[in-house]
Amino acid sequence: MSWFGKYIRSSVGAKHLMAISGLMLVGFVLAHMLGNLQIFKGQAAINAYAVQLKSLGGLLWIMRGGLVLAVLVHIFSAIRLSMLNSAARPVKYKKVKTDKSSFASRTMLWGGIIIVLFLVFHLAQLTLGGGPLQENFNLVDEFGRHDVYNMTVLGFKNVAVSASYIVAMLALCIHLSHGVTSLFQSLGLNHPKYNGMIAMAGPAIATLVLIGNCSMPIAVLAGWVKATV
């Protein structure tokens, strides 16, 4: 397996790691968003969905394991590559003008850091039940199910929580707008016929994620989605 170690340590292999782990994470973000959007279908639907998810049992843990691995690989690679990149130019330019790079591409690292910070808060709040909004985590609905609906709605009613959520989604959107297109490039998935579409894929998916995810706190704050407790 020495070839594999050599492969992933190489500059191109490292890009592949970034791209594949990124692809897994994008997949998760999209699936997660689709699940959460069921909040618009009402309390019963989303709470049932949560139960269904948990009933996956072993499979859920495999998915969670994969997700954790992807996060770790993505973060570790990002740190390693940033250090290598910084070392590749020990003396910086006095003047730099950019032409094709975007705000998104230049802030991938910072976007990533915001997302990681958000992730810690997000998991604490909604998965592990810690943090400042702990009481919402213990709610149950009339069938005795974990009341994901009210937990989320009550959470978003807190303006600070919603605001930080929206800021994080903006960061994620910017991150994805470069990241998604980039992963095609990194994996070598290109063809003159489809290159235009690929260039659009990043911004399109990023916008979708932004709209989808932000629709929830906005709907709560606007009072379109109300708590039932």
Binding site: S10, S11, V12, A14, K15, L81, L84, N85, A87, A88, R89, T98, D99, K100, S101, S102, S105, R106, M108, H178, T181, S182, Q185, S186
Partner: peptide
């Protein structure tokens, strides 16, 4: 690619500069 890495160049993050 190996020679490129050995030479100490940075990595691509698809800025397209």
């Amino acid at each position: 690619v190996n020679a490129m890495d050995q030479a100490g160049f940075g990595n691509c993050s698809n800025h397209l500069e």
